[in-house]
Each structure stands twice: as C-alpha cells, then as structure tokens.
Design a protein around this nucleic acid. Structure first.
Lengths: 225, 225, 225, 225
DNA sequence: TATGAATGAGTTTTCATTCAT
DNA sequence: AATGAATGAAAACTCATTCAT
C-alpha cells in the first residue's frame, strides 16, 4: 500500500493508542523534509543525493519513497514548505496595521530585510526553483499570492491619503522592489563578495544597506518627478 | 596528450598550415562552451548532462574532455565566460563620461536594466554559481572587480560636487542597489509570476518597473533624511 | 504467532463464538488467493507485486504473510488452487460414462475445449509454472494424476472393444494430444493473433477449430496406417 | 550520445580500419542478446536480472543500456530475435516443394516437431510473451506472418487436387493444429511430467507422440465426416 | 582532432519482509 | 486478525570518465 504525494497523508489519530504512532510518523516525515531542504539548498535538485538526506536521519532512504513517492515529489514538498514559511512570516508581520504609513513601511521593509537574511536557505530554494523553471510552484496552487500585498496596498493607500506618498505605485510592483533589494543580497552574496570584495554579512555593510533600502523605497514613494 | 584546464588553451599558433585547423578547433571549443552555458543554465551543475551538451553539436562527448578536461573544468570556463561578458558589457557602457551626473546615472541604470533583461542566461549562471558556493568564481582571478564601480564612483563624485546628490553613498553599495533591482526581476521572474501573477516581461510592467528603479535610485541619492 | 504454509490453515474450529471470526478469516484468505491468482497470471512470479495484490482488497500486505508466510507460499497456494480447479472440472465431466465411446470422446473433448477457453487464467498459471521449472507443482503431492486419464482409458477400451478405435493408443498420450489442442489456443492466443492475424476468440474460428480438434482426435483413433 | 532502441543501430563499416571496431561492437551486441535470451527464458521478464546477464559476458551492465536502452528494449530485441529464428527455421524447411502432398506434410510436421523440441528456449520466450500480453510482438511489425502458411496452403491445395485430402481446411488453422501439438509438449513438459509422470523427452514417448501428431494431422485431413 | 565503445562507481527506485501496536 | 510504519537488500538505470582507433 502506497502513500506518496504531499501533505494530506497524515491522518488525525483516532485515540490515545494511535496517537503515538501517527505522531512518530509525522515526525519522520518532517525529519525527511528538513534534511531535504538543507540538501536541496546546498546542492540543487540534480546535485542533491537521497543517500545524503537519509544519512542525516535515523530513517532509511526507502522512507523518502514511502512518504514522498519520488525525488521529484520530495522536491515539490520542500518548495511548498519553503513558500509556506515565507508567506507565514509575511503574514505574521502584517498584523500591526493602523500606525503611520511611513513608520509602517519602514517596519515592513526592515522585517523583510531581516527575514531573508536570517533564512538564507529559503532564498536558495527560491533561486533553485527559478533555475528549475518553477516547475514545482506551477503545480502548487496553495502558494499563490501573499498577505504582504494587501499590507502594502493598505500602507500605500494611507500614505497617499495622508499626502506622504505620491500615487501611481502598485502594491505588487512595490513588493518586487523591496523583495529584490532584500533577496539579492542573500542569494547573490557569494559572487558579489568574490568579485567586489564586499561582505554583505558585515554589520557595518548591513547597516548601510538597510538604510539604503529604506531610503530608496521611501525616496521612490516620495518622488515627484 | 591532454590540454584541459581553461583559457590558456587558445593560444593562436604561429604556423601557417596549422591555422585552418586551429580555427576549426577554436570553433569547436566555442560551440561546446555555448551548448554548455545553456545546459548549465537550464539544469544546474548537478543536473547538466555532458551527453546533452554533446548532442547539441556535431561534436562528441570526448571532445569536452579534450578541450576542458572535466565537467568541472567546463563549468569553470562557462562561469568565466559569463562574467567576462557581463564585465565587457559594463565596460562598453562606461565610456561616455562627462555628461550631467544624473543623466549619466539614468543612462547607466537603464543600460543595466536592459542588459540583464536581454541576457537571462547570464543571471541563471550567476544564480547557479551562488548555489554552488561560488566555487568557480573563487578560482578565477580575472573576474575580480568591474569597471562599473569606477563609473559609479565618478558619477557619485560629480553629483555630490554638483549638489545634486547627497554624500555618504559608496559606489559598491550603489552597485548592489542597482544590480539587485535589475537582476532580481530576471532571476526570480518565474516564481514571481506564478505567485503574484505578474509577468515582468509585459511591456507595461517593464516600463513601470524601469521607472521605479530610476526613481528609487535617484530618490535614494537625493534623500536628505 | 504465524501460520504460514498452505492449506492446513483452514481448519474449521469447533468453538461457537469463534465461528464468525473464522469465517471472516477464511474469506480474507480467499480474497487474497483470488487477487494473487490474477496478479501472478498477469505478471508472472517475478513480476507480481504483493503491493498490487494487497491494493486489490480491503486487506493489507502484511496479511499475505499472516496467511501464506511468503510470496513463495502464496504462489504455491495459487498453483495448488488452479490445478485443483482443473482436476475438479475434469472430474465433474467424467461422471456420465456408459454411452457410446465416440460420443463420449466427443463430449469430453468438447468439454475440455470449452473449459480452457472459459478459464484463460488457469492456462496462464500453468504456463507460468512451466516457466518456473514447475517448482510449485513438484512440492504439491495433491496435484498428481487426474481422473481424466481413467475416463480416457475407459473410452479407449470400449472403443477398441467395439471396433471403432484402433488399439495401441495410451490414455496419457491421448490426454496430451487433446490438452495440447485445447490449451495452446488459449495460452498462445495473443502471439498467434499478432503474427497470423487470426483471433481464436472469433466464433467462426472457434467453431472451425473445435471441429478440427474433434476430427483430428477421432481421425487419430480411427487411423489404420 | 545515445543509441538504444533495436537492431538498426549497427552501421556498415566504412573501411578496413573501421571494420574491426564495428565487428567487435556487433559481437558485443549479440553476446548481450544471447545471454538475455537465456535469462528471460529462465526467469521471465520480471524475474530476469540485468546483473545476471552482464555477469555472463565480459561486458558491463551499462552496455545493455548503451545498446538496448532499457530492460524493456532488451526484452523486445530478444522477442524479435526469437521470432525471427522461428520464421527462419520455417522458411528453410519450406524450400523442397514439389513432392507428394502427404509426404510433404509429413516432412513439415516432423520438422516442426523436431525444431521446437530442439529449441525449448524459444517456446519459453513465446510463452512468456503471451503472459506479457504480447506487448513486444505488438510493436514488432517484422514478425508478422510466416512462410509456413504459404507452404501449408500449397500442400493443402495439391492434396485436395490429388484427392488425398478433403477440402475446407484453412492453412492458418492447420498451422495452429500442428503448432499446438508440437509446442505444447515442449512448453508444458514440466507440469505434465509432474502430474502424469510422463516424460516427453523419453525416446519411446517421443516416437509415439510424433506418430500421433502425424496420424492425427493426416487423420484430420482425410476425415470425411 | 575526432569518434564510438566501454567502464565502474554511483543514483534512484523497488520490494519482499518484519515490527510495534 | 489487522494495520501502518519501517527496513535492508537488491534492482534498474545513469553518468562522468577513459580507451582504442
């Protein structure tokens, strides 16, 4: 009897005795997923080794097939998981509406900046998925959209209403702008360092860049050209 | 007798009769390099297949070894080639100094924006190299630095001197800022399109984004906060 | 506590309350056996998958081990079951002795012809067992012999006595003759159809072939050469 | 650079120097094919092991993929080869037309009888292919038809014209009749021996059975019922 | 220079079997 | 009596690399 595919496989335990087993199974699944995220981020899809993933746990390689069906299925689950984490993080931030639009935007940008910096593995997975023609994302309807767009739209509307921001800026475009500045410094850190000898991880550099991102974003919104 | 390694293999021989053959050889080498660039860009290092590269040409797989020594050597040559192309493009632009600093900056940003858009394969190779821990770039001394930094420094100096720009912005940091905005929309186009349903290739979107990049960059430099 | 092996597992228990459960168990066992017969017939021993067998029922793969001990044990049970069914069918026919020898033979041949046609799965199992070096049959003492041989011997004796048939024909040899003609058209139907474009399932073809088998058999027995 | 697929892969050597290599390559291919025929005949498709095939030669398992692309491709090549051999044998016999129809038929039957007996591996492959739903034969246009049908048609026509045979017998049907009797005793030899304790390989049994097949066939054709 | 054949070490995948509950 | 999870050994298949010509 096969399981495979994605996440819906974990049944709600019927009782106490069942609980332990299902919990253990779910734990096995998560172990695999975590190890796989690391391995895929480190070596790409083609370079990732199921052996390496299995070796990181107490489980065997066959379990990958039991839970995910194939290397491709595992990859899909990893991508799904990463985008879910990104969206979750964005959602968690969007709660504290109601403040001044500019303050709000600064907070959002700062948060985004810090989030990607703190989770370089996510950027790697996203880069890899782009190299892979987004073939996993295409098949995952649940990754569509992000709460951050609503949040930006709200900020923009308030800023424009309050006369702080100029109009004509679209929320998705603004998200591109902020994302580019926050993600690039993580995803392209290594080549940038080699070529320009500048380490984005250096605290001073980081502080300057955060300031630039904030000023650039606000400069864009305030521009009257 | 093997040749292997990277570029020093191209020495143009002094002999006369040998010329034809060397020209053919050089052509074979370039064919391999181009096919390899595509293959690596499409599948990453681990996913790239020497068979696939050989099949794209009239040459055989063994030729890869004759000219590049190994898959790794071929990969290095591809990365070197790509960065050389990027730097060459940047250099070509930097020639027309002497105009107004802001105009100059607009031209440089616009050029960078268009260049990456026109060469998505380059961004792919750069993304891949980052996923690969920059292991090729580390070994390639010739890719260090870029003329664009001098150009930006010159623009900044003139802009500050002319009172158009505020001071305190570093040329390399500014290059990060511009690169991020120009590269991200190419390297992350696919996932962005899937998730936010916004196609960066759409002319209207492109025009808006170019405007944003220009306004954002200038807004950053003009900012007095 | 394991049971394993083959048929002696079916003992009907004397207990009262246990009855329901044993009936259910026997039903499970038969379900497995049927699914297994199909799977083995369809894919051969090596190609058969316990997963596939389990998936066809409401039972799990582990039940196969509970009831049959191993894939090999299950295979043996299937072969035993099939030969038992064949012998049972042969026995059922042999009851109505006492008629004219030639009529009797016609009836027997016609019956054999129809039986194999109606149960192509049996021929498949027999073919498979031959491909498997008869390793299951060797270990199954209960499949030895068949009532059909006695029946043929009786028919032959009466036919010879009545001057209808010539002597010198052995009952087992005659069984080979009839079986070959009846089994081949089932077991080799597919390749024959592809190569000669003749479908043995076609009613007209079937009628002609039945006539041939009857005429051939009787022609053999009447021959005086 | 891949080859795979079936037989057309062997190029005609361009010259003397090329000859040796191509001949060696062709030899490798045939070695694999022969080992595979044995392995498939012995264990069926699912049970056959590529390792076992490779171990029988001085070549490696990867060569199977080089020449045949997959286990399935190898299987197809084996089936093709076997049917080609059967048809070739049938063709070789069909040459000596012109004799008396009955003599001719006796010779053909005797030859068929001996051929299958001498090549039990062929019958195994045919049995296996039937168990495998004739999936290889379906894809092999070159196995369609057999010269034996023409030969039988000719014999029948002459026999009818000469008054020796009755009319109304179709050549393909007759081929079924003869094939069934000749193939069954090879393909079902093992189970028959176990169940009826009669060894078809025994010279005395063989002689009796050949006589039966001859008499039965002629009896069929002479029958006036 | 160039080619097709060959190889060996790996990689993904499968599967019969067992275990804990 | 039954189940789902787990396992290890082996299977098919791949691929970078080398060799003979």
């Amino acid at each position: 009897m096969r399981m495979a595919k994605t996440t819906e496989a974990l049944k709600v335990p019927a009782g106490r005795a069942g609980l332990t087993r299902d919990v253990a199974a779910e734990r096995t699944r998560r172990d695999i997923l975590q190890a796989a995220t690391q391995e895929f981020a480190a070596r790409g899809f083609g370079g990732a080794r199921l052996d390496a993933i299995a070796d990181q746990m107490q489980t065997t390689k066959a379990m990958v097939y039991y839970y995910f069906g194939s290397k491709e299925g595992l990859y899909r689950a990893v991508v799904e998981d990463v985008f879910a984490a990104i969206h979750r993080a964005e959602f968690e931030h969007c709660g504290d509406q109601g403040r001044d639009a500019e303050d709000e935007l600064r907070a959002l940008v700062t948060h985004t900046f810090a989030f990607h910096e703190a989770h370089p593995g996510y950027s790697r997975i996203v880069s890899m998925e782009n190299l892979n023609d987004a073939r996993a994302v295409v098949q995952l309807p649940q990754v569509k959209g992000s709460p951050v767009v609503q949040a930006l739209a709200s900020i923009l509307a308030r800023g424009v209403a309050g006369g702080q921001f100029r109009g004509g800026i679209d929320a998705v475009d603004l998200h591109y702008f902020i994302s580019a500045l926050c993600v690039f410094r993580v995803s392209n850190r290594l080549t940038f360092k080699e070529i320009f000898d500048r380490d984005f991880a250096d605290p001073a550099v980081r502080a300057r860049q955060l300031a630039m991102v904030l000023e650039g974003t606000l400069g864009l919104l305030r521009a009257t050209a």
